[in-house]
Design a protein around this nucleic acid. Structure first.
Length: 292
DNA sequence: CCGCGGGCCTGAGAGC
DNA sequence: TGCTCTCAGGCCCGCG
Protein backbone atom coordinates (compact mmCIF):
# COMPACT_ATOMS: atom_id res chain seq x y z
CA UNK A 1 0.00 0.00 0.00
CA UNK A 2 2.10 2.74 1.23
CA UNK A 3 4.34 4.71 -1.01
CA UNK A 4 6.27 7.78 -0.03
CA UNK A 5 3.25 10.10 0.48
CA UNK A 6 1.46 7.59 2.70
CA UNK A 7 4.57 6.91 4.78
CA UNK A 8 5.23 10.63 5.12
CA UNK A 9 1.61 11.16 6.21
CA UNK A 10 2.06 8.48 8.85
CA UNK A 11 5.33 10.03 10.00
CA UNK A 12 3.66 13.39 10.50
CA UNK A 13 0.88 11.78 12.47
CA UNK A 14 3.18 9.85 14.76
CA UNK A 15 5.75 12.56 15.35
CA UNK A 16 3.74 14.61 17.89
CA UNK A 17 3.00 11.61 20.09
CA UNK A 18 6.37 9.91 19.82
CA UNK A 19 9.11 12.48 19.44
CA UNK A 20 10.46 13.58 22.79
CA UNK A 21 8.57 10.84 24.63
CA UNK A 22 9.62 7.58 26.18
CA UNK A 23 8.51 4.13 25.13
CA UNK A 24 7.18 3.04 28.51
CA UNK A 25 6.18 -0.38 27.26
CA UNK A 26 6.43 -2.18 23.93
CA UNK A 27 4.52 -5.25 22.78
CA UNK A 28 5.33 -7.57 19.91
CA UNK A 29 2.24 -9.75 19.85
CA UNK A 30 3.59 -12.40 17.53
CA UNK A 31 7.01 -13.79 16.87
CA UNK A 32 7.29 -12.41 13.37
CA UNK A 33 5.96 -10.04 10.76
CA UNK A 34 7.63 -10.52 7.41
CA UNK A 35 10.75 -11.57 9.34
CA UNK A 36 11.10 -12.83 12.91
CA UNK A 37 11.50 -10.05 15.47
CA UNK A 38 14.98 -9.77 16.91
CA UNK A 39 15.18 -11.59 20.25
CA UNK A 40 15.96 -8.37 22.11
CA UNK A 41 13.41 -6.29 20.14
CA UNK A 42 11.22 -5.30 23.08
CA UNK A 43 14.11 -4.91 25.52
CA UNK A 44 15.91 -2.47 23.24
CA UNK A 45 12.79 -0.29 22.98
CA UNK A 46 11.43 -0.16 26.50
CA UNK A 47 12.65 2.78 28.53
CA UNK A 48 14.09 4.54 25.49
CA UNK A 49 13.27 8.09 24.49
CA UNK A 50 12.36 8.67 20.85
CA UNK A 51 14.60 11.59 19.99
CA UNK A 52 13.42 11.92 16.40
CA UNK A 53 11.11 10.33 13.87
CA UNK A 54 12.34 10.46 10.30
CA UNK A 55 11.68 8.83 6.97
CA UNK A 56 13.95 7.38 4.30
CA UNK A 57 12.17 6.20 1.15
CA UNK A 58 9.28 4.06 2.44
CA UNK A 59 10.93 3.45 5.82
CA UNK A 60 10.09 5.19 9.06
CA UNK A 61 13.09 5.61 11.33
CA UNK A 62 12.77 6.31 15.03
CA UNK A 63 15.98 7.51 16.69
CA UNK A 64 16.31 6.25 20.23
CA UNK A 65 18.25 7.73 23.15
CA UNK A 66 20.32 4.55 23.34
CA UNK A 67 21.87 5.18 19.94
CA UNK A 68 19.68 2.58 18.28
CA UNK A 69 17.39 3.29 15.36
CA UNK A 70 14.05 1.52 14.94
CA UNK A 71 13.41 0.88 11.25
CA UNK A 72 9.78 0.32 10.25
CA UNK A 73 8.30 -0.68 6.89
CA UNK A 74 4.56 -0.88 6.22
CA UNK A 75 4.70 -3.48 3.45
CA UNK A 76 1.44 -3.60 1.52
CA UNK A 77 -1.20 -3.41 4.22
CA UNK A 78 0.48 -1.89 7.27
CA UNK A 79 -1.03 1.06 9.11
CA UNK A 80 -0.44 2.86 12.38
CA UNK A 81 -3.07 4.37 14.55
CA UNK A 82 -2.75 6.52 17.62
CA UNK A 83 -5.13 5.88 20.49
CA UNK A 84 -5.40 7.96 23.62
CA UNK A 85 -4.98 4.85 25.71
CA UNK A 86 -4.82 1.26 24.47
CA UNK A 87 -8.28 -0.21 24.69
CA UNK A 88 -10.03 3.14 24.51
CA UNK A 89 -11.63 4.07 21.23
CA UNK A 90 -10.51 7.36 19.80
CA UNK A 91 -12.61 9.42 17.40
CA UNK A 92 -12.09 8.18 13.90
CA UNK A 93 -11.68 4.55 14.75
CA UNK A 94 -15.37 3.94 14.41
CA UNK A 95 -15.23 4.22 10.65
CA UNK A 96 -12.13 2.11 10.38
CA UNK A 97 -13.43 -1.44 10.14
CA UNK A 98 -10.13 -2.95 9.08
CA UNK A 99 -8.37 -1.66 12.13
CA UNK A 100 -11.15 -2.63 14.44
CA UNK A 101 -10.01 -6.14 13.66
CA UNK A 102 -7.59 -6.34 16.53
CA UNK A 103 -6.39 -9.72 15.34
CA UNK A 104 -3.92 -7.85 13.15
CA UNK A 105 -2.68 -5.41 15.79
CA UNK A 106 0.82 -6.83 15.91
CA UNK A 107 2.93 -4.18 17.65
CA UNK A 108 2.02 -1.61 20.29
CA UNK A 109 4.18 1.18 21.70
CA UNK A 110 2.80 2.61 24.94
CA UNK A 111 4.28 6.09 25.06
CA UNK A 112 4.94 8.25 28.10
CA UNK A 113 2.81 10.87 26.31
CA UNK A 114 -0.19 8.75 27.29
CA UNK A 115 -0.78 7.75 23.68
CA UNK A 116 -0.45 4.25 22.37
CA UNK A 117 0.82 3.67 18.86
CA UNK A 118 -0.62 0.52 17.30
CA UNK A 119 0.77 -1.18 14.22
CA UNK A 120 -1.84 -3.19 12.28
CA UNK A 121 -0.86 -5.30 9.28
CA UNK A 122 -3.17 -8.04 7.95
CA UNK A 123 -0.83 -9.30 5.25
CA UNK A 124 2.31 -9.01 7.37
CA UNK A 125 4.55 -7.85 4.55
CA UNK A 126 5.68 -5.10 6.91
CA UNK A 127 8.62 -5.41 9.27
CA UNK A 128 10.57 -3.71 12.03
CA UNK A 129 14.24 -3.93 12.80
CA UNK A 130 16.47 -2.25 15.35
CA UNK A 131 19.90 -1.17 14.16
CA UNK A 132 22.70 0.64 15.96
CA UNK A 133 23.04 4.11 14.45
CA UNK A 134 26.68 3.54 13.58
CA UNK A 135 25.65 0.47 11.56
CA UNK A 136 23.08 2.34 9.45
CA UNK A 137 25.39 2.80 6.50
CA UNK A 138 26.07 -0.90 6.31
CA UNK A 139 22.41 -1.90 6.75
CA UNK A 140 21.44 -4.08 3.77
CA UNK A 141 17.83 -2.85 3.79
CA UNK A 142 18.98 0.72 3.21
CA UNK A 143 22.22 0.24 1.40
CA UNK A 144 21.21 0.28 -2.25
CA UNK A 145 18.53 2.97 -1.98
CA UNK A 146 18.65 5.75 -4.54
CA UNK A 147 18.00 9.42 -3.77
CA UNK A 148 14.87 10.82 -2.17
CA UNK A 149 12.60 12.06 -4.97
CA UNK A 150 11.87 15.25 -3.01
CA UNK A 151 15.49 15.79 -1.99
CA UNK A 152 18.08 18.09 -3.52
CA UNK A 153 20.13 15.46 -5.31
CA UNK A 154 17.20 14.20 -7.35
CA UNK A 155 17.04 16.10 -10.60
CA UNK A 156 16.89 15.43 -14.33
CA UNK A 157 20.64 15.04 -14.65
CA UNK A 158 20.82 12.47 -11.89
CA UNK A 159 17.76 10.56 -13.12
CA UNK A 160 18.99 10.46 -16.70
CA UNK A 161 22.36 9.20 -15.54
CA UNK A 162 20.79 6.47 -13.43
CA UNK A 163 18.67 5.34 -16.37
CA UNK A 164 21.26 5.68 -19.12
CA UNK A 165 22.54 2.10 -18.96
CA UNK A 166 19.22 0.48 -18.09
CA UNK A 167 17.91 -2.24 -20.36
CA UNK A 168 14.44 -2.00 -18.94
CA UNK A 169 11.27 0.02 -19.38
CA UNK A 170 10.86 3.46 -17.89
CA UNK A 171 8.08 2.14 -15.65
CA UNK A 172 10.30 -0.59 -14.21
CA UNK A 173 13.20 1.84 -13.74
CA UNK A 174 11.05 4.23 -11.69
CA UNK A 175 9.84 1.37 -9.50
CA UNK A 176 13.44 0.33 -8.90
CA UNK A 177 14.31 1.77 -5.49
CA UNK A 178 18.00 1.93 -6.51
CA UNK A 179 17.14 4.54 -9.14
CA UNK A 180 14.91 6.70 -6.95
CA UNK A 181 13.60 5.63 -3.57
CA UNK A 182 10.00 5.99 -2.49
CA UNK A 183 7.87 5.68 -5.61
CA UNK A 184 5.48 2.75 -6.03
CA UNK A 185 2.95 1.61 -8.56
CA UNK A 186 0.41 4.42 -8.11
CA UNK A 187 2.73 7.40 -8.24
CA UNK A 188 4.81 5.99 -11.06
CA UNK A 189 1.68 5.57 -13.20
CA UNK A 190 0.50 9.06 -12.28
CA UNK A 191 3.87 10.73 -12.88
CA UNK A 192 4.27 9.05 -16.28
CA UNK A 193 0.80 10.20 -17.25
CA UNK A 194 1.45 13.75 -16.14
CA UNK A 195 4.69 13.88 -18.08
CA UNK A 196 3.02 12.24 -21.10
CA UNK A 197 5.65 9.52 -21.25
CA UNK A 198 4.87 5.94 -22.14
CA UNK A 199 5.51 3.35 -19.43
CA UNK A 200 6.85 1.08 -22.22
CA UNK A 201 9.50 3.53 -23.37
CA UNK A 202 13.05 2.44 -22.75
CA UNK A 203 14.45 4.00 -19.58
CA UNK A 204 17.65 4.80 -21.42
CA UNK A 205 15.82 7.35 -23.61
CA UNK A 206 15.91 9.83 -20.70
CA UNK A 207 19.54 10.50 -21.59
CA UNK A 208 21.06 11.62 -24.85
CA UNK A 209 24.85 11.97 -25.09
CA UNK A 210 24.99 11.83 -21.29
CA UNK A 211 22.65 14.79 -21.00
CA UNK A 212 19.11 14.68 -19.65
CA UNK A 213 16.43 15.06 -22.30
CA UNK A 214 13.44 17.36 -21.95
CA UNK A 215 11.51 14.19 -21.17
CA UNK A 216 13.66 13.68 -18.09
CA UNK A 217 13.01 17.23 -16.94
CA UNK A 218 9.27 16.87 -17.46
CA UNK A 219 9.28 13.60 -15.57
CA UNK A 220 11.13 15.03 -12.59
CA UNK A 221 8.69 17.90 -12.25
CA UNK A 222 5.76 15.50 -12.60
CA UNK A 223 7.20 13.35 -9.81
CA UNK A 224 7.67 16.40 -7.60
CA UNK A 225 4.16 17.61 -8.34
CA UNK A 226 2.32 14.38 -7.76
CA UNK A 227 4.19 13.54 -4.54
CA UNK A 228 3.70 16.98 -3.04
CA UNK A 229 0.01 17.01 -3.87
CA UNK A 230 -0.45 13.54 -2.46
CA UNK A 231 1.28 14.43 0.79
CA UNK A 232 -0.97 17.47 1.11
CA UNK A 233 -3.97 15.18 0.65
CA UNK A 234 -2.85 12.81 3.39
CA UNK A 235 -1.94 10.11 0.88
CA UNK A 236 -4.19 7.78 -1.10
CA UNK A 237 -6.67 5.45 0.62
CA UNK A 238 -7.65 2.54 -1.59
CA UNK A 239 -7.94 -0.27 0.93
CA UNK A 240 -5.66 -0.07 3.93
CA UNK A 241 -4.08 3.33 4.17
CA UNK A 242 -5.32 5.55 6.97
CA UNK A 243 -3.87 8.59 8.58
CA UNK A 244 -2.87 7.83 12.16
CA UNK A 245 -6.06 9.51 13.35
CA UNK A 246 -8.07 6.93 11.41
CA UNK A 247 -9.07 9.45 8.77
CA UNK A 248 -8.76 8.56 5.11
CA UNK A 249 -6.28 10.16 2.77
CA UNK A 250 -8.04 11.64 -0.23
CA UNK A 251 -5.52 11.74 -3.06
CA UNK A 252 -7.22 8.74 -4.70
CA UNK A 253 -9.86 11.21 -5.91
CA UNK A 254 -7.14 12.95 -7.88
CA UNK A 255 -5.86 9.87 -9.70
CA UNK A 256 -5.86 10.50 -13.42
CA UNK A 257 -5.05 6.96 -14.57
CA UNK A 258 -4.46 4.61 -11.66
CA UNK A 259 -7.45 2.30 -11.16
CA UNK A 260 -9.32 4.14 -13.95
CA UNK A 261 -9.26 1.53 -16.70
CA UNK A 262 -11.86 2.29 -19.39
CA UNK A 263 -12.44 5.89 -18.30
CA UNK A 264 -11.82 8.80 -20.66
CA UNK A 265 -8.41 10.44 -20.57
CA UNK A 266 -8.66 13.70 -18.65
CA UNK A 267 -6.29 15.61 -20.88
CA UNK A 268 -8.25 18.22 -22.81
CA UNK A 269 -9.07 17.19 -26.39
CA UNK A 270 -7.18 13.90 -26.08
CA UNK A 271 -10.25 11.70 -26.37
CA UNK A 272 -8.23 8.62 -25.40
CA UNK A 273 -9.30 5.86 -23.01
CA UNK A 274 -7.30 4.77 -19.99
CA UNK A 275 -5.86 1.30 -20.57
CA UNK A 276 -4.32 -1.27 -18.32
CA UNK A 277 -1.71 -3.95 -18.92
CA UNK A 278 0.75 -5.94 -16.87
CA UNK A 279 4.40 -4.94 -16.67
CA UNK A 280 6.82 -6.89 -14.49
CA UNK A 281 3.87 -8.47 -12.76
CA UNK A 282 2.19 -5.18 -11.83
CA UNK A 283 -0.72 -3.35 -13.39
CA UNK A 284 0.17 -0.33 -15.45
CA UNK A 285 -2.55 2.26 -16.14
CA UNK A 286 -1.98 4.78 -18.91
CA UNK A 287 -3.39 6.66 -21.87
CA UNK A 288 -1.80 5.23 -25.02
CA UNK A 289 -2.97 8.23 -26.99
CA UNK A 290 -1.17 10.98 -25.10
CA UNK A 291 1.70 9.10 -23.45
CA UNK A 292 4.53 8.60 -25.93
C1' DC B 1 26.23 -7.49 -12.45
C1' DC B 2 21.17 -7.17 -14.30
C1' DG B 3 16.25 -8.15 -15.17
C1' DC B 4 12.48 -11.05 -14.47
C1' DG B 5 9.02 -14.22 -12.19
C1' DG B 6 7.73 -16.46 -8.03
C1' DG B 7 6.61 -16.22 -3.47
C1' DC B 8 5.33 -14.29 0.83
C1' DC B 9 0.20 -13.31 3.39
C1' DT B 10 -4.80 -11.95 4.10
C1' DG B 11 -9.06 -10.12 2.46
C1' DA B 12 -12.25 -8.05 -0.93
C1' DG B 13 -14.89 -8.53 -4.87
C1' DA B 14 -16.52 -10.85 -9.08
C1' DG B 15 -18.60 -14.71 -11.20
C1' DC B 16 -20.85 -19.00 -10.95
C1' DT C 1 -25.30 -18.37 0.62
C1' DG C 2 -20.80 -20.08 -0.49
C1' DC C 3 -17.25 -21.63 -3.24
C1' DT C 4 -13.25 -20.48 -6.39
C1' DC C 5 -10.55 -17.34 -8.68
C1' DT C 6 -8.13 -12.96 -9.29
C1' DC C 7 -6.13 -9.07 -7.59
C1' DA C 8 -3.97 -5.66 -4.25
C1' DG C 9 0.20 1.07 -2.40
C1' DG C 10 6.24 -4.00 -1.72
C1' DC C 11 10.28 -6.28 -1.92
C1' DC C 12 13.54 -10.42 -1.22
C1' DC C 13 15.40 -14.29 -3.59
C1' DG C 14 16.91 -17.47 -7.02
C1' DC C 15 17.27 -18.22 -11.82
C1' DG C 16 19.11 -17.47 -16.45
Amino acid sequence: MPELPEVETVRRGLQPVMEGFLIAKAEARRKDLRFPFQKDFVARLEGQTVTGLGRRAKYLMADLGSGDVLLMHLGMSGSFRVVADEGTKSPGQFHHPRNEDRAHDHVVFHMSSGASVVFNDPRRFGYMKIIARHALEAEPLLKGLGPEPLGNEFDATMLARACADKKTSLKAALLDQRVVAGLGNIYVCEALYRSQLSPRRSAATLAKKNEPTDHAKRLVSAIHGVLNQAIKAGGSSLRDHRQTSGELGYFQHSFQVYDREGEPCQTAKCGGIVKRFTQNGRSTFWCPKCQK
